[in-house]
């Protein structure tokens, strides 16, 4: 069985996790240009919408309805009947590589494209 008092090894374990988090935060290959398209990915397929055109998009996936809005070059989730509600507070995304994820519904909103800069690539 494991020990029941905090040890030096615990501090090492925490340091390893924190180091991994910091490494991922400051990934040197990260590039964030303004995006040009909103890409909506669901289990049923993928669709793209230009950020230059304001619109509302209703997405229905796995019994969850989500309303995404493109407004003034940015995208956000206005409504969702997902029990988690994370996507509603995800804020506005407009930089290439940013995304909003609705895990229960399997919906991902991401931004791609831009002024010739490379999209965010990790790993």
């Amino acid at each position: 069985m494991f020990r029941t008092r905090v040890t030096v090894r615990d501090a090492i374990a925490v340091a390893v996790v924190l180091f991994a988090a910091c490494l991922l935060l400051w990934a040197p290959w990260q590039s964030r240009a303004d995006g040009a398209f909103l890409v909506i990915t669901t289990p049923d397929g993928t669709s793209e919408y230009a950020l230059s055109e304001n619109r509302e998009i209703e997405i229905n996936s796995q019994g969850i309805v989500l309303i995404a809005v493109i407004e003034n070059g940015a995208a956000y989730v206005r409504e969702s009947d997902c029990p988690d509600g994370v996507c509603r507070v995800g804020g506005r995304i407009f930089k290439s590589g940013e995304s909003i994820l609705c895990a229960p519904a399997g919906i991902r909103l991401s931004i791609k494209g831009g002024d010739g800069n490379v999209d965010y690539v990790a790993g």
Binding site: V17, L18, A20, A21, C22, L24, L25, T41, P43, G97, E98, S99, L101, G106, R108, S110, D119, Y120, V121, A122, G123
Partner: peptide, 16 residues
């Protein structure tokens, strides 16, 4: 599931 590594941007916050 989504076929992209962009999701890894959530990992630092989840690790913290």
């Amino acid at each position: 599931l989504f076929g992209t590594s962009l999701i890894t941007s959530y990992l630092p916050a989840l690790l913290l």
